[in-house]
Amino acid sequence: MALSKVWVHAEATENGVAPITLEMLAKAREIADVVEVFVGGDGAAVAATVGAHGATKVHATGDLSGKLQGVHVAGALAAAIEGGEAPDLIMLGTTQDGRDIGARLSVKLDKPVLTNNTEIEVGDGIVVSTQIFGGTQIVKTKFAAGSPAIALFRPKSFVAEESGGGAAEVAALAVPDAGAAGAAKLVNRHIEETSGPKLDEAAVVVAGGRGLTEAAKFEMIEELAKLLKGAPGASRAIVDAGWVPYSYQVGQTGKVVKPTVYIAAGISGATQHMVGMKGSKNIIAINKDPEAPIFGIADLGIVGDVHKVLPQLIEALKAR
């Protein structure tokens, strides 16, 4: 049994449509006859890309001119649904805006929103899978509150694939007045400059944690990442400590990465970190504590001092 219609949240970024959107579109095509997207912004800007990934229509609010996504996009969706356009399923990414829209919509429709999903099956109802306890167990949950089901997915749960479709048709999605609840505003955007491959796209990720002992030692991680043409990453502990920006964070609250090689240096492997990197094809761990949980999933484990091993590794790579 396939669903008749699925709506996927299209997230627009400075670099075009976000990868999570294209990943969800690939899955949506598998489980539904009609796949459409909605966007809190300009529909024409995303129509070609989402069309090439199988969406036939873009429901677009147009420029929100400083209004926040959550309350306004959810309000627009709820109004469209009341107007008889209800899909069977609404898919969003487990991202900042995805969570805000999904949460507001769940209250508007008085239906649950299920988050952090990594898989979806359609058979006798809609069933989503979520990893718990650091990804060691998988919970399957069935929606039991009628259409539409609202589900949020972790990035990299599915593989994006073009469908060969033409540009999607753009349709206006009216945004009702949100009253007092809509009073929060976006005043200004700040983009942090990054160089080298992106963390969630790099073939090699070199990540550092508390074991580096001080912020200045993160330079070793940056240098090693550069030598391997990879991206530097970090555990939540050192992001919270302010050593590196949040955009470096790998884990449950940060990015999900699945590189060819993941090097964890001075990272013990808290469950919250492992959720974000255990899908890596090869894992190398360096930690001085032989009991560190990271060794339980590492293909190559080095029980040693990162302050000795990393400089030696950097020298060895430079010598090649």
Partner: peptide, 25 residues
Amino acid sequence: GQEIIDVAAAPAREAGEVFEDDGTA
């Protein structure tokens, strides 16, 4: 509005080799 229908162990990732650093790490 939701029903948990199954909880199962995720496929485990096999641990590989672990070495004590003897200078050849």
